[in-house]
């Protein structure tokens, strides 16, 4: 049958759901082994963080879409968690191959890493669902269209109180680690990347300024380089 925007969106959702094991709301045995190999086991911290972020996400989703949609928010959060675990496992496999280490204690106990990774997984889930309301141009889908706009990036950053700069760090590794992402979703993540680079990362309070300051201080003792164009 011809590919309509709605059919394309439905296929993306089906692919996303089908691709994620229904038991994936818990870490796989492989991922559990990575946790156990850590100097400090991150399992409890990860579980607690997910519970806390889930309690934050659903009400905010309800605020943006409507109180009768909180259950959809929970559903999307659960899909996001499954994608988060799947991508985390794939990222660690690549890192193990690249660095020849199995102890990722520092990374796996870094709260910012987990929040950024989950935020990226949720952005993918929501962009997959919102594809239908964006492209549909309204036709009887008024509420969905409004919701799409409200839930649009950088909505997730505000929900998780996450800096754009930290979110930016996971995007490329996320795309590398999840080869089943559709071209539309990759393009969406690239749009988020550009938005961060051009605008959001430069807002007051961004950790980027602190990083630049530290780099400058560290560089002050070294020989000054000729400014690049």
């Amino acid at each position: 049958p011809p590919q309509t925007p709605i059919r394309a969106a439905m296929n993306s959702i089906k692919l996303l759901r089908g691709d994620l094991p229904s038991s994936g709301d818990q870490p796989s045995s492989k991922l559990t082994t990575y946790f156990k190999n850590c100097t400090v086991d991150p399992s409890q911290g990860i579980q607690k963080r997910l519970e806390m972020l889930g309690q934050v996400f659903s009400p905010k989703f309800g605020e943006a879409v409507g109180p009768h949609c909180i259950a959809y928010g929970r559903e999307r959060f659960n899909l996001g968690v499954r994608l988060y675990y799947k991508v985390m496992e794939s990222m660690l496999e690549s890192e193990e191959k690249r660095l020849s280490v199995q102890n990722f204690s520092k990374l796996l106990n870094d709260s910012t890493f987990h929040t950024s990774l989950l935020a990226c997984a949720l952005e993918v889930v929501m962009a997959t669902y919102e594809e239908s309301s964006f492209k549909n141009g309204g036709g009887g889908h008024g509420e969905g269209e409004q919701a799409g706009r409200d839930l649009c990036f950088p909505w997730i950053l505000n929900v998780f109180d996450l800096s754009a700069f930290d979110f930016y760090k996971v995007i490329e590794s996320f795309i590398k680690a999840e080869p089943t992402l559709s071209k539309e979703i990759i393009k969406h993540l690239e749009t988020c990347e550009n938005l961060i680079m051009e605008k959001i990362a430069w807002r007051t309070g961004s950790p980027l300024f602190e990083l630049l300051k530290r780099e400058q201080e560290a560089g002050a003792t070294e020989q000054a380089e000729t400014p690049a164009s």
């Binding site: 990222m91 690549s94 890192e95 690249r98 660095l99 990722f104 520092k106 990374l107 870094d110 910012t112 890493f113 760090k169 996971v170 490329e172 590794s173 795309i175 590398k176 071209k183 990759i186 393009k187 993540l189 690239e190």
Partner: peptide, 21 residues
């Protein structure tokens, strides 16, 4: 078609981006 431009080198990964060794 759309191709994402990967900026990270082969020797770089998520560990470096979050300051981990």
């Amino acid at each position: 078609s759309h191709d994402y431009h990967f900026g990270l080198e082969e020797h770089e990964g998520i560990s470096e981006l979050f300051d981990c060794d």
